[in-house]
């Protein structure tokens, strides 16, 4: 049984997951470049740490490698993750 992929915005807090796809086309060149520089790429592991703002309308903060980065929800929605590929996942 496989767990369906989620958007990064739907990932529960502090649930480690692996990035399976990034829809680079929805990001501008500069935004894509910056996310790459932050270490965001297919096969990287990610964990959502915080939702900013009330009612989860603000940006999200997530852990990528050893960095914590913040991005808006529209960018996070371009990132698809799976929770069953991470080492140690049930």
């Amino acid at each position: 049984m496989s767990i369906p992929p989620l958007r990064l915005t739907e990932l529960p807090l502090r649930q480690p997951a692996r990035i399976t796809a990034i829809d680079w086309d929805t990001l501008s060149h500069a935004e894509g470049q910056r996310l790459r520089e932050f270490g965001l790429c297919e096969s990287a592991d990610v964990e959502v740490l915080h939702h900013g703002g009330l009612l989860r309308r603000g940006p999200i903060a997530c852990k990528i490698g050893r960095m914590t980065i913040a991005m808006r929800r529209n960018h996070a929605a371009a990132v698809t993750v799976r929770t069953d590929l991470v080492e140690g996942a049930a």
Partner: peptide, 8 residues
């Protein structure tokens, strides 16, 4: 509007 991408 542009986005918000930032290292913490």
């Amino acid at each position: 509007s542009g986005g918000f991408l930032m290292e913490m």
